[in-house]
């Protein structure tokens, strides 16, 4: 693993409301959502983070802003990972989409939209992917009851 690259990246990202820290072998960056696209461009073009691994969210119902949107990136050249984390409010759960930079963002953003209702600005295709058309609510939000059923077809008597 090339720790030098992560150290340089940490110095580079510090400031502008971004707080990079090392955590369990990767660089975790807390940043305001407005800084996402610039940061991703920097990661991709200057630091070679060419693989978009994952996007998901974490729901903290008692906290304001309520959601954390979490991105993971990987550099296939230097074998290091970066995590970007942004807080978004329940009233305006929108972050910028990365579909222009990474193809893999298409499906993963759809999943995150399914599960948490996070909208991705710039991703025109946010159809349900793991859920189905007409499903109401966002199951991974903490206020969605686990037992709630929304079957499409009638139970067998």
């Amino acid at each position: 693993m090339s720790q030098g690259l992560l150290e340089r990246l940490r110095e580079r990202l510090d400031g502008d409301g971004r707080e990079p820290v090392f955590a369990h072998g990767l660089l975790a960056v807390q940043l305001p959502r407005e800084a996402l696209l610039d940061t991703v461009k920097l990661l991709k073009d200057e630091f070679g983070f060419d693989m978009f691994l994952d996007v998901t969210a974490v729901d903290w119902p008692k906290r304001e802003p309520r959601f954390d949107v979490v991105h993971h990136f990987y550099s296939t050249h230097d074998h290091v990972r970066v995590r970007l984390k942004m807080a978004v409010t329940e009233a305006d759960p929108v972050v910028d989409s990365l579909v222009d930079h990474y193809g893999s963002a298409h499906f993963m953003e759809r999943e995150c939209h399914d599960m948490f209702g996070i909208a991705f600005r710039g991703n025109a295709d946010l159809r349900p992917i793991l859920l189905y058309e007409g499903f109401e609510g966002h199951p991974l939000r903490k206020d969605y009851p686990k037992e709630l059923e929304q079957p499409l077809v009638r139970y067998r008597e």
């Binding site: 189905y132 058309e133 007409g134 009851p145 037992e147 709630l148 499409l152 009638r154």
Partner: peptide
């Protein structure tokens, strides 16, 4: 479960 009853729908699950 105390949760609302489910309305019957017959939609195409994918678009």
């Amino acid at each position: 479960t105390g949760l609302p009853p489910v309305e019957e729908t017959l939609r195409n699950p994918v678009r």
